[in-house]
Amino acid sequence: MAEFLQHLVNALVLGGTYALLGIGLTLIFGIMRIVNFTHGELFAFGAYFVYLFAMLLGFNFFIAFAIAVVGGCLLGAAIEFILLRPLRGADIETTMLVTIGAWIIMQNTELLVWGGVAKAITTPFPETPLVIGAISVSPLRVFVLVIALVLIGGTYALIHRTKLGMGMRATFQDSETAELMGLNIRGIYTATFSIGSGLAAAAGALLGPVFLAAPTMGDLASLKAFAIVILGGLGNITGATIGGFLLAIIEELGAGYISSGYRDAMGFLIIIAVLLVKPTGLFARAERIG
């Protein structure tokens, strides 16, 4: 029982960052209809930004984290502005190819700047774990979970409580009508891509110190983000949140009780099953438009 609870705690911590990754990607797909392959690189970017500011430039860890998130938003906005805005109205394959190209360029740039060897990031959190009964968790991981939950909550509030969020939802439902109603669609697209990218960078900035920062770390993150989005239904934010936690639980329990060698394969087996049984995703609503 203690072992099972420990597995659940591990999954919960990881699930928070998975959810962040999934929400970012699903936002961009739902609103902009763009299959965004740069998502994983924004994740890696977040981790390296923390490394740059906290480890190389000596900033406070929390400030470095904030800079990484803001930096991710700005980089996302720049990608949208330079690469995607001129392609508005182009079909989905065209934009997909462009994001694939951008992904390759970004990953190789990271390689050039940081080298291939993974970098460790130290944090001000004590290394001694918090022990509650038979369960241990490091303070850093608690921080990661709390920040992830705050960011998830913040994203919900942004979408459901603000004017920008209302514009995003309107664009999601029907972009042409929204534009006819006088909405600044271009601005909404830039904001969406920027927020989505910022969330990916935040996930990377949170997991970088937990794991290591490596130029190829974005590949697996991208794959997992796509898996989460498919699990939760394309464009479905609640689905992505639940999907993120679900994927983490599946991976953790799969590795703990079935086969540890195939940990990263577990999630994808589930995805195949979901695509076979309920191709719109587990949480798709029948009345969803778009």
């Binding site: 794991f211 991976e251 953790e252 590795a255 703990g256 540890s260 990263d264």
Partner: peptide, 10 residues
């Protein structure tokens, strides 16, 4: 793999 918590927990 970067997260070995499942294996270590077991």
């Amino acid at each position: 793999a970067q997260d070995m918590n499942a294996q270590l927990t077991k």
